Amino acid sequence: MSIVPSNLQHAPDYAWEVATLFPQQGYWSEEEYLSLTDSTNARVEFVDGRLEFLEMPTEIHEELLELLYEALKAFVTDRQLGKVRFSGIRVRTLPGKTRRPDVVFLSKDNFNLRHNRDWDGIDLAVEIVSDDPKDRKRDYEEKLAEYAAAGIAEYWIVDYQDRVVTVNKLVGDQYAEQCRFTSGDQATSVLLDGFSIDVKELFEAADKLAD
Rank of each mutant, 00 (worst) to 15 (best):
Q80D: 15
A71Q: 14
S107Y: 02
E154L: 04
V4Y: 04
E17D: 09
I89P: 14
L72P: 01
S2V: 04
K137E: 15
V76W: 12
G96D: 09
V103N: 13
V190I: 09
V164S: 01
L36H: 06
L191R: 11
S39K: 15
K200V: 00
N41D: 14
W156M: 08
G194V: 02
A150N: 10
K97P: 00
L72W: 12
I152M: 09
L94W: 10
Q161W: 07
T98V: 15
A74P: 00
Y140I: 06
G49I: 02
V4Q: 02
G121P: 08
V126F: 15
Y69C: 05
F86S: 15
S35I: 04
D118H: 15
M1I: 09
T93Q: 08
N7K: 04
F111A: 03
I152W: 12
L34T: 01
R90Y: 06
T37F: 05
Y140M: 08
G49D: 08
C179Q: 13
C179T: 05
V171N: 03
L65S: 14
V165Q: 05
Y33W: 08
I60M: 09
V129N: 04
F111I: 00
Y27D: 13
Y147Q: 06
T20V: 07
V167A: 11
P12V: 05
Q25K: 08
E70L: 15
T93G: 06
G172R: 04
G184I: 02
R79M: 06
Q25A: 06
S130M: 10
D159V: 11
W28S: 01
L54N: 15
E52T: 13
K169W: 12
A205D: 08
K208G: 04
V47M: 08
S107R: 02
R114P: 01
G184D: 03
L8T: 02
I60H: 03
R100C: 13
E45V: 09
W28A: 00
K200C: 05
K108E: 12
W16P: 00
V47L: 14
P101R: 13
V91Q: 11
L8Q: 09
V44K: 05
E204I: 00
W119L: 12
W156I: 04
V103P: 10
P95L: 11
E62G: 11
K143H: 09
R92T: 11
F105N: 02
E66V: 08
W28N: 01
F195A: 07
R50T: 09
S189W: 00
Q178D: 13
G49Q: 08
